[in-house]
Amino acid sequence: MVLNYTEIMVLVWVLWGTCLVMTVFRGSLQWYTQHRLHADDHFVFLGLISLTGLSVVITRLLPQFYLSGDYVKAAVKDPLTPLPLPPDEMAERTRTSLKLMFCQMLLFWTTLWSAKFSILFFFRRLVNGLPKYIRAWWASFVVVTLLYLACMLSNFLTCAPLKKYWSATGCSDPEDLRRSDASIKFATSADVVADLIIMILPLNLLRKLQISRRQKFGLGLLFSLGSIIVAFAFARLAQVTKATSNITKDPTTVANGPILLSMWSHIESAVSIIVATLPVFRYLLNKNIRGSNTPGRYGTPGYSSGQYGSGQKRSRAKNILTVTGRSQDTAFRLQNLRDVEDTESQTELKETDGITKRVDVHVEEMLRTPATRPKGLA
């Protein structure tokens, strides 16, 4: 279904406004909770800037494609239908619109991959300090980057030679349309593969977390957000290839191709930015799970999967000190305790320095107080 120009403009700018609100709210929430912005936040901002450019370009180029589409529909019924504009002006406006269409695809892939990199760098913060997962993250980062470059390159290879892309007739030959169809399918495949890589990456970590089923379910949803983008990628592919698959059967369908491409490219781009803003709202989810998020005497609590009371910490510290034996000194035992904390940090959603500090305080108090000092310690 092809919307009219007014309907598409409403859709485009409502989606842009939604992305703007979500991005501003994300940045404000990050600054309020952490007093800083991370790489994943900056990628969302980059995506919003790119989406803004995409919205402007689509607003600028669509009038000409609607004009051309109406002329093609009329010419199919009556081949003697005159051009709606003087030939020279019509050709110049068509060339300008095709140049904007070329820029539109570059902005589209940049917006889409900005959202992917945002989610990828968000996960990078979760696995910080875990060498195995860091290596897997770097491998994923390299593959996702190469897929982005491949999509950008495919835009330059759709039309040969490139200057033909913005000629008066554009890439309208059957061979050009076949190449365009292959390019769209390849780029969509790269888009889906990148999303799957980003989703699969944290699944092994999620399986090993010692947290409640409710929290695992919440994190599973968080790590599966890319499936929303995948769904819209397939919807975009199904709509756009209608114009490139039926090469000579329906000129009207071919004429609607640029309109469908612009509309669905913007929809998928906007959805990707909205999805990329969602992980930051884990703060609200964790606040509801824990019941509160008030800073304590040992520092500001982070986004951990749970909190232990001081009595539980003291009991855990005492057990670890007992297991280590008499021959080890206090410093080594404290280091063992920190190693346990580092292992449990796999369940965290960010670094929580306050917990380590609190454990150290309890252990040091136990060692100084004769009543609580473990047997065997001098």
Rank of each mutant, 00 (worst) to 15 (best):
V2Y: 05
L3W: 11
N4Y: 14
T6L: 10
L11I: 03
W16P: 02
G17S: 08
L20I: 11
F25S: 13
Q30T: 10
Y32E: 08
H38G: 05
A39L: 15
D41P: 08
H42N: 00
F43D: 03
G47W: 03
G47E: 07
S50R: 02
T52N: 06
L54T: 05
V56Q: 04
I58K: 01
R60I: 07
L61H: 04
P63W: 02
Q64Y: 09
Q64M: 09
F65L: 02
F65N: 02
Y71G: 07
A74K: 04
A75N: 04
K77M: 08
K77T: 12
T81A: 01
T81N: 01
P82Q: 07
L85T: 08
E89L: 02
R95P: 12
T96V: 13
S97N: 03
L98G: 01
L98M: 07
K99Q: 11
M101F: 15
C103V: 15
L106E: 07
F108D: 08
A115T: 01
F117N: 05
L120V: 14
F122C: 13
R125V: 05
V127K: 14
G129Y: 11
P131K: 04
K132V: 12
Y133G: 07
L147E: 10
L149H: 00
L149C: 01
C151P: 01
C151S: 10
M152N: 14
C159T: 02
A160P: 11
P161F: 03
L162R: 00
P174K: 03
D181N: 10
I184V: 13
K185A: 12
F186M: 03
D195Y: 10
I197N: 00
I197F: 00
P202C: 09
N204V: 14
L206D: 07
R207L: 15
Q210K: 04
R213N: 11
L219N: 06
F223H: 11
I228R: 04
A235W: 10
L237W: 14
S245K: 09
I247D: 07
T248E: 12
K249A: 13
V254I: 04
A255W: 00
S262A: 09
S265D: 07
S265G: 15
H266N: 14
E268K: 05
A270C: 02
A276I: 12
L278H: 02
V280D: 06
L284M: 15
N286K: 06
N286E: 11
N288D: 02
G291T: 11
S292Y: 12
R297W: 09
R297E: 14
G299L: 00
T300Y: 15
S305W: 03
G306W: 07
G306D: 09
S310P: 04
G311D: 12
G311M: 08
Q312C: 06
K313G: 03
R314F: 07
T322V: 02
V323P: 00
T324N: 06
G325M: 03
R326Q: 05
F332L: 06
Q335R: 11
L337W: 03
E341W: 13
E344P: 00
S345L: 03
K357F: 14
D360C: 09
D360V: 11
E364Y: 03
M366K: 04
K375S: 15
L377D: 01
A378F: 13
